[in-house]
Design a binder for these strands. Structure first.
Lengths: 348, 348
DNA sequence: TTGTAAGCGTTATCAT
DNA sequence: ATGATAACGCTTACAA
């Protein structure tokens, strides 16, 4: 069906070696033969068979991307970032969608059911001769699914790897929470209630540290009564408000947008308006946050940048031949999305 | 570095053919040799090189998926559906993210900038020996980016292909709108205002037909004054209400969730509550619709099913050797997500 | 039951 | 400047 290099060689009356050289711009070839061959290639719509090429060169210029679950909101942007980087560097992507949420609900990471699957998929990818593998987690944690002694480099995106040889690229949560707090402070708010996420979450921990750090730097006393833990869902944001408001905070920092939604609910129910009576800021910049009323000010997750950075790491490891780029962990900064849920304290 | 079939053969003292047979469960092999070889395979962690295999067999058991833009809300679910189907049938996915929205804003489909890119990506995929290609569009339209005379089968997801040889799988918009209308009717609402999408949109056309069809079947007079066109965004939903409400509809059917958000805005501004004073239903079932207050009843897009069905089509074409499965177009049914924005008319 | 060897479409080495 | 030819790791007749 489709042309081979051999046929092009026969048609143009040269050897396959010459055709190969012309295609790959190697060696010296006479201008006339080049013309002839290139013409034939165009005319017969010849496309090199990259499988054969890969077999010979033992490289595929493709990297395997393993996504824990495609449908988790962080994935599309992260993968988009990876593909952007790969496109710029002429790498192909082989996508594996583990569908972990679908299969094991959202607690898969506590079980071991998926470890064998990950191992098998990695083997498959390696057998397809990918040059490297990027593992994209659905949420941040210490992720030890990567087997040791793999023959290709691996980078972990959106989780902390437990292997020194696999770099992690994660969000700088501490910095993000610090910025949120500084921002609120700059608006005159000193009594900032925080609705944290689940206690054991890495996100929660880091963001709490950031909050305290900002307070400290501004010589504001840290009062534990201003911190209530939620479990990331809307109801818990609402519930947290019942406790928090007895201390009369002027601002609420919810550690994700959906809990901030619960804050909105509580406020409206008590005839207060977000941004007017109480400042509120969320985290994540999920799409819905822009649709809240009033639009929610929130700390945006640098999802695309994480993907892009993971791609860069990978390509660095691939080209610099084993020279590790950066240290073992890259923290990517969040970006504040200022909308309408925070006003100067003086105006309240 | 990694083992080859030849080494396993040498180690176990058999021929490569025998090893190959054992791996692929073909031919007859003595129980003893099988044991010996399988043991060696395990011990030395041998994994067949699938590139070599593909070269020989001229098939890769992989299908190329071209996504117009990863970050458009329909993509993740569609791709998830495709991967689910592929996983069940042991196919790999090669993902190409065109990033069309990012590159050409949202009007790329009117220009031709991306056609060459699509063509090039398809060539690349073919050269990688994919067995077939699924093209996933970011929104429905007549999509003529697929070149003719490709050497592999193609299926188009979420758009109408203009080639008889490439089947399309799309959402049954007419049926969806029909269901919405029937649902409202069943709740006693006969004066249903509709906020349509852009006039030229396929979604708009089909949904309008569905609306009229349901009306007709129930012998309700179709009054054009009950239809106002929006442009899919929130503000246009709000604006449409200014016109619509002069006719005193008891229910509003907005053709997407974000315009329904505009309806909510208008209602609240006029001291009416959605679902209580006026019934409202949206379309798409975007995540935010569940977070509206009250939660929005909406017609869910069968995104995952579209992906899965596209996968089935592909695999059908691949296995039944040219026998086309189904006709050229598969319409996938929407599913109503009943929430709290519609009440019986009698209760209003 | 097992082995031999050709060949998939390339690239790369070494001649010429 | 160009050509023969040997790999790359596998599958598959066909032979033994």
């Amino acid at each position: 069906m489709s042309m081979t290099i051999k046929e092009i060689a026969r048609i143009t009356g040269v050897s396959v070696a010459t055709v190969s050289n012309i295609i790959n711009h190697k060696g010296r070839v006479g201008e006339d033969t080049r013309q002839r061959v290139e013409k034939a290639i165009r005319e017969y719509h010849y496309t090199p068979n990259s499988v054969a090429k890969n077999l010979k060169t033992k490289t595929s210029r493709s990297i395997g991307v393993i996504a824990e679950d495609m449908t988790v909101f962080v994935m599309p942007e992260i993968i988009d970032g990876i593909t952007e980087c790969c496109e710029e560097n002429d790498y192909q992507i082989l996508l594996v969608n583990l569908r972990l949420y679908k299969k094991y609900s959202d607690t898969y990471y506590k079980t071991n059911h998926h470890r064998e699957q990950v191992k098998a998929e990695i083997q498959k990818l390696i057998s397809m001769q990918v040059d490297g593998i990027i593992y994209v987690a659905a949420h941040e944690r210490i992720n030890d699914v990567i087997p040791r002694n793999l023959s290709v480099p691996v980078v972990m995106a959106y989780s902390f790897s437990n292997r020194s040889e696999v770099p992690s690229v994660v969000v700088n949560d501490q910095g993000g929470a610090e910025k949120v707090t500084e921002y609120l402070l700059s608006k005159g708010h000193e009594k900032i209630g925080v609705i944290a996420g689940k206690k054991e979450s890495f996100h929660t921990l880091a963001r709490l540290e950031g909050y305290q750090k900002a307070l400290l730097r501004n010589h504001i006393f840290y009062d534990p009564d201003y911190v209530v833990y939620g479990d990331w869902d809307r109801q818990s944001g609402y519930d947290a408000m019942n406790h928090l408001m007895s201390n009369k905070p002027t601002a609420i920092f919810a550690m994700n947008d959906v809990m901030a939604g619960g804050v909105y609910d509580w406020l409206k129910e008590h005839d207060m308006v977000p941004g007017k009576d109480v400042a509120v800021v969320g985290y994540d910049d999920q799409v819905m946050s822009a649709y809240e009323n009033p639009p929610l000010t929130t700390m945006g997750l640098p999802l695309r940048d994480i993907g892009y950075s993971a791609g860069e790491q990978m390509i660095g490891m691939l080209s610099d031949e084993g020279i590790h780029v950066g240290s073992g962990q890259i923290d990517v900064d969040c970006k504040l999305c200022e909308r309408e849920s925070v006003a100067e304290l003086s105006k309240i």
